[in-house]
């Protein structure tokens, strides 16, 4: 075999290169996000809808709020408990979840999501 050594070295470098993302991320990734609740949220005990729904589908709720608020002039949302919420992203969601960086962003960073809402909607000021 001609140049066997070089080929093998080349293969090793090649395999190293292709698997580098695994080594690079080893130990770093996979920390489950743990969204923190503010005192205000803890006192409220429950979210606008069931927690399981909020976990998986809060963006659907937000989309519906946005649509009905702006386009149909329907500005209040009545929860199953009978509690009435003003349909506002910054005024309602972020009033309870005012620790945006340790709540919303925890998950979103983990999932590689970055909702563009904050180009316009104003993030709460957080004491870090």
């Amino acid at each position: 075999m001609y140049d066997g050594g070089k080929i093998i070295i080349g293969l090793i470098i090649g395999i190293g290169f292709f698997t580098s993302p695994f080594f690079f991320n080893a130990g770093k990734a996979a920390r489950r996000p743990e969204p923190e609740l503010t005192q205000k949220a803890k006192d409220a005990k429950e979210c606008v809808l069931e927690t399981s729904y909020m976990k998986s589908s809060h963006m659907k709720l937000l989309d519906e709020w946005r649509q009905t608020f702006v386009r149909n002039d329907e500005r209040y949302f009545t929860a199953k408990s009978g509690k009435v919420y003003y349909k506002s992203l910054q005024g309602t969601c972020l009033d309870c979840h005012s620790n945006k960086s340790r709540f919303c962003d925890q998950c979103h960073d983990y999932m590689g999501e970055s909702p563009y809402c904050w180009e316009c909607h104003i993030e709460p000021k957080e004491s870090k």
Partner: peptide, 11 residues
């Protein structure tokens, strides 16, 4: 600015 934190800016 922003003067009203309850109203979004535009982009």
């Amino acid at each position: 600015f922003p003067t009203n934190i309850n109203y979004p800016t535009r982009s």
